[in-house]
Write a protein that binds this DNA or RNA. Structure first.
Length: 665
RNA sequence: GCCCGAGUAGCUCAAUCGGCAGAGCACCUGUCUUGUAAACAGGAGGUCGCGAGUUCGAUUCUCGCCUCGGGCUCCA
């Protein structure tokens, strides 16, 4: 056996090591700093523990804590420590799975006698986890036969289930040789309450890899909350107790994340909705049903006005359809078959069964069918701010984001097949242009394909529709993800997500191809050849739901709407009563120029009024005193600025504010 | 719908180990007339989420319900 092996590093260089060296040894031989940051290694493109022994000719990359991959391992390993702590502290507890997730990790448990975790338990569990970290317990990998695994995990029914399904379960692992891969955390001395037959340590089924020991990279975590979660995500299964945690590579990253959560909480649209007096959810009306207060109402009106204006320009025709309809149209469309649970219960009336509409599309199809259509009319673009009602389950409601009654900026576009690709391409431009007008710049696109368990229509039709969407994305040179099986039952779709001011992603717009509704409703047009043809229908929403879009905007702007949308665009504060006439004059002139302006009477200190209006996030807080009366000027406190600008001629101020409104600045 | 948590004045939150319920902001009245993030005084405001039970007495303890929040599931 040769005494040296040679391995190749990512930069293509080669490195010699003594035979029997591990990936960790390699890291140490390269640099102390690298060894310190090393979490795992990638050997010939397979993730391995640092204890993995290298052989001659391996290609090796050291994965460090500051990479996404390294962080994923840190979170995964922290989840193991959580499970170890819980099993030690709660005799009789058993466990399900514990993967890393965005920002952290979770682990699912079942406590004996239907026990549940309480918020207080998190502190105890976290303290126990920190003890385990201090003990530097090694993560020791082993590959064992299924029989041995069944013995070790005899007390853990969910693990037994995983062993039986090992080959299909992504969180467990069968090795290349068909064995079950486990990791054991070996404590310095045997622990009470361990339930792994024949072992002193804590053992979990796991494909790994893991950090070398519990004291490597693991300290920067925090347990966040407890929640119920169904085993394997299926409501029919027992509900387990889930503990969520967040974990990071450094103390600073953890602190940043917690601060980000605080920032998000400050922007919470429900909180801002109350603070800025925009909307509310009176319980007398019922869950998930909002009322809009005047300040929120004006913003909504502006959004709707803008949407209408753009659609008018864009060649859309406006329609209106009722909130209530006989069951037949939803039987025809298929909604009743797929979504009856999500619809409000039927109302029996003298001439039939009626439903609140959960969608506008069937009614738009009836508008189309109102008379014979010619190819000359296509594309026919129908647009409606259509209010729909969906019976969302009580536990899913969330402010304006998930609501039971909402208004879609809904369009259904009927095209001839040869117009399809152009129309979708045009739609993409239209959608992005409107979203940009609301301050969004960063978009991601997803193509959702057929759900094999939930679809209507032929495979051929689906293929055609999916291709049309794909082509439109490609023509724009847009990168997009593919969500397999995420489509609506009637057709594939493109979803557009926007990134907000603090980096969160929101799914807003959707463009859906639909070959099925036209068939179900027997829609036709007469072509140039004097034959009847079947149009293709596109479903399309920009805001999606106006309520939800408003909520997203509110969080995006943290309540500080840009001037064109601000409920109050300017407030004029006279320094004292004697300046009130001038204040009124300034306000009148602004109002004549189309600015939403108020006067803040001098019955309170100037400082108090400034403070109040700053908290109301008014874009321009204007102050007029003696000098201003004499010179026809104002002082402008621009939102976000720290000093007032004095002596601005009123005419200049009007130009400044109207320009902001015009430019959506 | 299921698991966890919370409901006290319009808002943010105290307190009561079972004995007449408190503050700040907001609101109303008055005084102050002010040049940039809270002037002063007074007043009003409560079925302590709702309903039962235990008790001499329940906002407080028990049970049920409702609403809200965090998750799970679902989202045409």
């Amino acid at each position: 056996m040769p005494e040296q092996i040679a391995v190749t590093l990512p930069d293509g260089s080669s490195r010699e090591l003594p035979t029997g060296s591990t990936a960790g040894d390699l890291a140490r031989s390269i640099a102390r700093g690298l060894a310190k940051k090393a979490v795992i290694a990638e050997v010939n493109d397979v993730e391995r523990d640092l204890s993995h022994e290298l052989v001659d000719g391996d290609r090796v990359a050291i994965v460090t804590a500051d990479s996404d991959q390294g962080l994923y391992v840190i979170r995964h390993s922290t989840a193991h420590v959580l499970a170890q702590a819980v099993l030690e502290l709660f005799p009789g507890a058993t466990f399900g799975i514990g993967p890393p997730v965005e920002n952290g990790f979770y682990y699912d448990f079942e406590l004996p006698d239907g026990g549940t975790f309480h918020e207080e338990d998190l502190e105890r569990i976290e303290a126990r986890m920190r003890e385990i970290l201090k003990e530097s317990q090694p993560f020791v990998k082993s590959e064992i036969g299924a029989d041995e695994a069944r013995t070790i995990f005899a007390d853990h029914k969910y693990k037994l289930e995983i062993i039986e399904n090992a080959s299909t379960d992504p969180m467990s692992a069968t090795s290349d040789r068909g064995e079950v891969r486990c990791y054991e955390n070996i404590p310095p001395e045997p622990r009470p309450n361990q339930t792994f037959h024949g072992h002193d340590g804590f053992i979990d089924l796991c494909r790994g890899p893991h950090v070398p020991t519990t004291s490597d990279h693991l300290g920067h975590f925090k347990l966040m909350r407890v929640a119920g979660a169904y085993w394997r995500g299926d409501e029919k299964n027992p509900q387990l107790q889930r503990i969520y945690g967040t974990a990071w590579a450094t103390k600073q990253e953890l602190a940043d994340h917690l601060q980000h959560l605080e920032e998000a909480a400050k922007r919470d649209h429900r909180r801002l909705g109350t603070e800025l007096d925009l909307f509310s959810f009176p319980s007398e009306i019922g869950g998930g049903l909002a009322v809009w207060h005047p300040k929120g109402g004006i913003v909504r009106k502006l959004m709707e006005d803008y949407s209408r204006a753009r659609h008018e320009e864009g060649g859309y025709e406006f329609v209106y359809t009722p909130h209530l309809t006989k069951a037949g149209v939803f039987e025809t469309s298929g909604h009743l078959h797929w979504y009856a649970d999500g619809m409000y219960p039927p109302m029996e009336m003298d001439n039939g069964t009626y439903y609140m509409k959960p969608m506008n599309c069937p009614m738009h199809c009836l508008v189309y069918r109102g008379r014979q259509r010619s190819y000359r009319e296509l594309p026919l673009r129908l647009y409606e701010l259509g209010t729909v009602y969906r019976y969302e389950r009580a536990g899913t409601l969330h402010g304006l984001m998930r609501i039971r009654g909402f208004t879609q900026d809904d369009s259904h576009i009927y095209v001839a097949e040869e117009q399809l690709a152009d129309e979708i391409a045009g739609l993409l431009d239209f959608v992005l242009s409107v979203l940009r007008a609301f301050g969004f710049e960063d978009f991601t696109f997803n193509l959702s394909t057929k759900d094999p368990d939930k679809y209507v229509g032929s495979d051929e039709i689906w293929e055609k529709a999916t291709e049309a969407l794909r082509e439109a994305l490609d023509r724009h040179g847009l990168e997009y993800g593919v969500k397999e099986g995420d489509a609506a039952f009637y057709g594939p779709k493109i979803d557009i997500d926007v990134r907000d001011a603090i980096g969160r992603s929101w799914q807003l717009s959707t463009i859906q191809a639909d070959f099925n509704h036209p068939e179900k409703f027997d829609l036709t047009y007469v072509g140039a050849d004097n034959e009847h043809h079947r149009p293709i229908m596109l479903h399309r929403a920009l805001f999606g739901s106006i309520e939800r879009f408003f909520g997203v905007l509110l969080e995006h702007y943290a309540g500080a709407f840009p001037t064109w949308l601000a409920p109050v665009q300017a407030v004029v504060c006279p320094v004292a009563d004697e300046h009130e006439d001038h204040a009124q004059t300034v306000a009148d002139r602004l109002r004549d120029a189309g600015v939403r302006v108020e006067v803040s009477a001098a019955d309170d200190g100037l400082g108090a009024r400034i403070r109040r209006h700053k908290m109301e996030k008014v874009p321009h807080i204007l102050v007029v005193g003696g000098d201003d009366v004499a010179n026809d000027t104002v002082a402008d406190n621009v939102r976000g600025g720290d000093k007032p600008e004095r002596d601005i001629p009123v005419a200049d101020l009007i130009e400044r504010i109207t320009a902001e409104i015009r430019d959506h600045a």
